[in-house]
């Protein structure tokens, strides 16, 4: 009798044990949170700006000199100073400089540099990959998910739009002297130096 009971009980115990060990429950919010944790673009962007971008901006070529070199020796200047994660004609440069504000509109401020060149600093359209790509620090091989890479640009730009441009826009006026650092995009096959738009990483009014 006991042997017969054991014969039926044993498979039941095995099935119950397998079932218990095969099924587990997790809270949905914990699963969602762990999915989000995979890559934190906001934290990455903040760390990148603080630890790498500002330092790269400090070592960037002066805008006046860079523009002169682009006019006179475009090929070697692209080779020496530009970077991009994409292959193709779009390249990015880091630069720094100073100038006097000559005009302000809804989207930009315009500066006259010591070499009498007019440059445009974006205050509204802070978008694109200029600040991500220009220093040449981030490698495409560090990212297996393309959207993570896109989100890095979006988050860098968001930080600049939140922390850098609003306090600057509230104080800047025509005649202000400004020290700036940032990045700009240039098409190496059709170079147009008249429409350069610098995406700022730092902006400081000195008077």
């Amino acid at each position: 009798m006991a042997k017969k009971a054991l014969k039926y009980l044993l498979p039941v115990v095995v099935v119950v044990l397998l079932a218990i060990n095969s099924v587990y429950f997790k809270k949905l919010n914990e699963v969602k949170a762990s999915a989000i944790k995979q890559f934190n673009a906001t934290a990455y962007a903040r760390n990148y700006i603080d630890q790498q971008l500002l330092s790269a901006a400090g070592k960037a070529p002066e805008t006046d000199q860079l523009l002169d070199q682009l006019k006179n020796k475009p090929d070697s200047t692209f080779k020496l100073y530009s970077h991009a994660l994409d292959i193709g004609n779009i390249r990015f440069f880091m630069t720094k400089g100073q100038g006097t504000v000559t005009s302000i509109d809804d989207n930009n401020i315009y500066l006259l540099t010591p070499n009498k060149q007019t440059i445009k600093i974006a205050t509204e359209y802070i978008f694109g990959n200029a600040l991500r790509d220009a220093p040449g620090i981030i490698s495409i091989n560090d990212f297996t998910n393309t959207m993570d890479l896109n989100n890095v640009s979006a988050e860098i730009n968001k930080i600049i739009r939140t922390d850098v441009t609003p306090p600057f826009k509230s104080k800047v006026k025509k005649g202000s002297n400004v020290i700036f650092a940032g990045a700009f995009e240039l098409n190496q096959q059709h170079i147009n130096l008249n429409n350069i738009e610098i995406i700022p990483v730092s902006l400081k009014i000195t008077n």
Partner: peptide, 25 residues
């Protein structure tokens, strides 16, 4: 080989259309 290689896309408008032909520059 790199697992993914992005190729840049360029904005084409009436301002720069003369720099481009179909499927390229």
């Amino acid at each position: 080989f790199p697992k993914k290689i992005p190729v840049a896309v360029e904005l084409v408008t009436t301002d720069n259309i003369n720099d481009y032909i179909a499927y390229g520059k």
